[in-house]
Computed example of a mutant assay.
Amino acid sequence: MDNKIVDMHGNPRQQTQPPVSDFWFAQVDVRLGRIEFMVSRLERQIWLIVCGCAGLLIFEILKALSGGAQ
Rank of each mutant, 00 (worst) to 15 (best):
M1V: 14
D2Q: 13
N3S: 13
N3Q: 13
I5V: 08
M8Y: 13
N11V: 07
N11K: 12
N11H: 01
P12T: 04
R13N: 04
Q14T: 09
Q14H: 14
Q15C: 13
Q17D: 06
P18L: 00
P19F: 03
P19G: 10
P19K: 05
V20P: 14
S21E: 10
S21R: 03
F23W: 06
W24F: 11
W24T: 13
A26L: 08
A26D: 09
V28E: 12
D29W: 08
D29V: 00
V30P: 03
R31N: 03
R34I: 09
R34F: 02
R34M: 06
I35C: 01
I35M: 04
E36F: 03
F37W: 12
F37E: 15
M38S: 08
V39D: 08
V39Q: 12
S40K: 06
S40W: 07
R41C: 09
R41Y: 09
L42S: 07
W47V: 08
L48E: 09
I49K: 05
I49A: 03
C51F: 15
C51D: 14
C53N: 06
L56T: 07
L56H: 10
L57G: 12
F59G: 12
F59W: 11
F59T: 11
L62C: 10
K63V: 11
A64P: 01
L65D: 03
G68Y: 00
A69G: 10
Q70H: 14
Q70W: 13
